[in-house]
Amino acid sequence: MSTITFRVSEAEKEFIQKMAEFNGVSVSELSRNNLLESLEDQIDLDLYEKARQAHRAKDESISLQEMKKVLDE
């Protein structure tokens, strides 16, 4: 397993340690999980924005009434 180091202030260090303790995990686990979750959220947001732009470019939405007609046929 690799190691990544980053610098924080004393106050940030204390806060991170308290949050790790509060969550019942190590500082390493807390940092790793939150960092990876944040990066995954960025990817999800980017994919959402691209899908939204594609939808705007070619909107194929139909109304509820139109959908009912399609499903009844």
Rank of each mutant, 00 (worst) to 15 (best):
L71A: 09
K18G: 09
D46F: 14
H55S: 03
S63W: 07
E66L: 03
L47H: 06
N23G: 02
E49H: 08
S28D: 13
E49K: 13
E40K: 12
S26L: 11
E60R: 04
K13L: 04
Q53Y: 03
L35N: 04
I43L: 07
E29W: 08
L36T: 00
N34C: 05
L36M: 11
E12L: 15
M19T: 13
F22V: 07
D41E: 10
L36N: 08
A57R: 04
D41F: 13
E14V: 15
L47T: 00
H55R: 08
D46A: 15
E12K: 08
Q42L: 12
Q17D: 11
L45R: 15
Q65D: 10
L39S: 02
E12A: 13
V70L: 13
L47I: 00
L45I: 12
R56T: 04
S28P: 02
L36P: 02
N23R: 08
S26N: 03
D46P: 04
L71D: 10
A57E: 09
L45F: 01
N34P: 06
E60M: 08
G24L: 01
A54M: 01
Q65E: 11
Q17Y: 01
A57W: 00
I43S: 04
S38V: 02
I62E: 10
I62R: 11
E49T: 13
S38K: 15
E21L: 06
I43V: 14
E66T: 11
L30M: 07
D44K: 14
K58E: 07
D59R: 03
E29D: 09
Q42F: 00
M19Y: 00
Q17E: 11
E21N: 05
Q17R: 10
L64I: 09
A51P: 00
Q65Y: 06
I43E: 01
E40D: 05
A20K: 03
A51S: 07
V27N: 14
S63H: 05
K50H: 02
I16V: 13
L45A: 15
S38A: 13
V70C: 04
D41A: 15
R56H: 04
V70Y: 09
M19P: 01
L39I: 13
E14K: 12
N23C: 04
Y48G: 08
A51V: 09
K69V: 10
V25N: 02
L64P: 01
Q17F: 01
E37C: 03
D44T: 14
